[in-house]
Each structure stands twice: as C-alpha cells, then as structure tokens.
Design a protein around this nucleic acid. Structure first.
Length: 265
DNA sequence: CTGGGGATGGGGCCC
DNA sequence: TGGGCCCCATCCCCA
C-alpha cells in the first residue's frame, strides 16, 4: 500500500551513496536477526507504558512530566497533530474547528500538507529563505521540474522506488522496507525493523504485554490496546460532521462517510 | 453493514 | 548515525 503521503517533499537533488548502503547491508547481521530469541519485553517497562495507554489524561500528565515525549502535550495547540484535529473537545466541536484560528503551522508528520517535517527543518530552514535556482542534471522525482527554483537542501532518493528523503538516515530506514532484513525464524516472514519482528513473534508466542485496565484484556500491540480503549469510552473520538454520529476509529468514520450518509462537501 | 480485534507498515523523535 | 520506541494509518477478518 503506497504511503507516499508520508514521504518528505524533496527540496533538491543529491545522489545517494548507494555503495555505502550496500556495504552496510552486507555487514554483520545484528544478533536479533540471527535467529536469536528476542529478548522478552520488559514487563516493568510494559507496565509503565501501560499506564500511559490507560487514559489520555494520564498521557498528558506523564508527558508533561517528562516522559518519552515529555515535550508533547495535546494541551499545547502548537503541538497538536493534524490527525488529532478530528478529536472532539469538551465544547462539542472537533478539535479541527478549534484550531481554525491558529496561524502557526502544525508540528507533525510529513503528511501535514505544506508543513515541513522536523527532520527537514535543520537542512532546509535557513537556507530555504534564500532560494536559488538549481537544475538537476539527472532524472528527477515527481514534483520537481527543470528550471524551477529548488530549495538549497539535501535530497536522497530511493534506488528501489521513486520515494525521496531529506536525510541519508531516513533513506536507509526506508530502504529496509525493500530489503526486509528481519526474518522470523518461526515462519520466515520478513520485516523491515526488529521491533516489527518482535511484534510479529508475539503472534506466535501469544504474548500480550499490553492489558486494558478497564477489562483486563490483553493485547500484543500497543496501538491495538489504544484502539480498544476507545471502545470503553462513552464519547467516541471521531465524529461525522454530517450526521454527528461518533466512531471509535477514524477508519470507521471514513468508512461511514464513504458509505453514503454524509458525503464530503 | 457495523464494530472491534489482530497484524503490519512507516516516518518522526529521542537518546 | 543508528537503535528503540512512539504514534498513526490501514488492511483483513470475524462476530
């Protein structure tokens, strides 16, 4: 499934050092990928994070106190993610509507239309203020045209597909989605990242380190627990602007709107 | 058809 | 620079 909307917008061109990448690929395989037993999830960590999943208010509280992302709190409008715009606030309006007066660009993912991802900031910020013409002399990706002004920042394109990234690290990470270096020794299925493999292995072991504090039900994946917690919530996060019906998942809302009821105007 | 669980993919952030 | 983790999104399947 294409996730091109997550790909950074290219700023300029630079030929990636593919030789370096291939060299890295040929290097020693991390122990985790060598059919070693994955270290079991640390229960204490799971417990700590479980509380974070338990309730949004707790999440804010913990983050405010310097958790993994202590600087992230939904209470700060500048930190609101675009996807949170669908949240329903106490005033009854979707967060999106509450944000209408914000003239500050949202911080967030590259899917944020027009917004520059944090990773791009470092390389594009200052330099981008002084744009200079730059014409690439090799095949260009989508969105860039010969003779157009291109920001003076680095750009790395994937040799396997047309995606491009603002840093070599991001490109390397992406290339793993093609090479899939993490293979499950039980079923052989390959993954791009070790923690994806770990999550997959839980499907074999039946391990469910994330449990719901409402009903005690266990989950192998934190995101699934988070989705499950919504089923306990009286007010669903996502509301159809057309009919007002609320849903626990954005996917359900999308399905609902695609269905018939409230066509997007 | 709807709602929910399971599984997975992916970029960003922090250390 | 890379690993680990976070969060989000999405697909598939089932009740």
């Amino acid at each position: 499934m294409p996730r091109s909307f997550l790909v950074k917008k290219p700023c300029s061109y630079r030929i990636p050092n593919y030789g370096q990448l291939l060299e890295a690929q040929a290097g020693p395989v991390p122990a985790l990928f060598q059919n070693q037993d994955p270290s079991p999830p640390r229960q204490e960590i799971a417990d700590q994070r479980q509380t974070r999943d338990a309730a949004p208010s707790q999440i804010q509280e913990e983050r405010g106190q310097g958790g993994d992302h202590g600087n992230k709190t939904l209470l700060n409008p500048l930190e609101i993610r675009r996807s949170d715009a669908l949240l329903i606030l106490p005033n009854g309006l979707p967060l999106k509507d509450n944000m209408n007066n914000l003239n500050t660009p949202l911080r967030g993912r590259t899917s944020d239309g027009g917004g520059s991802a944090p990773g791009n900031k470092a390389s594009c910020n200052a330099a981008s203020q002084e744009e200079s013409p730059y014409v690439p002399d090799f095949p260009k990706p989508d969105g860039l045209y010969p003779g157009s002004k291109i920001r003076n920042c680095r750009y790395f394109s994937c040799p396997h597909c047309s995606k491009s990234y603002g840093s070599l690290g991001a490109l390397k990470m992406h290339i793993r989605t093609h090479t899939l270096p993490c293979a499950c020794r039980i079923c052989g299925k390959a993954f791009s990242r070790p923690w994806l493999l770990q999550g997959h292995i839980r499907t074999h072991t039946g391990e469910k380190p994330f449990s719901c504090y409402h009903c005690g039900r266990g989950f192998a994946d934190r995101s699934n627990l988070r989705a499950h917690l919504q089923t306990h919530s009286e007010v669903k996060r996502y509301r159809c602007p057309g009919c007002g019906k609320t849903f626990s998942r954005i996917s359900l809302l999308t399905k609902h709107r695609d269905g018939c009821c409230c066509p997007v105007s």
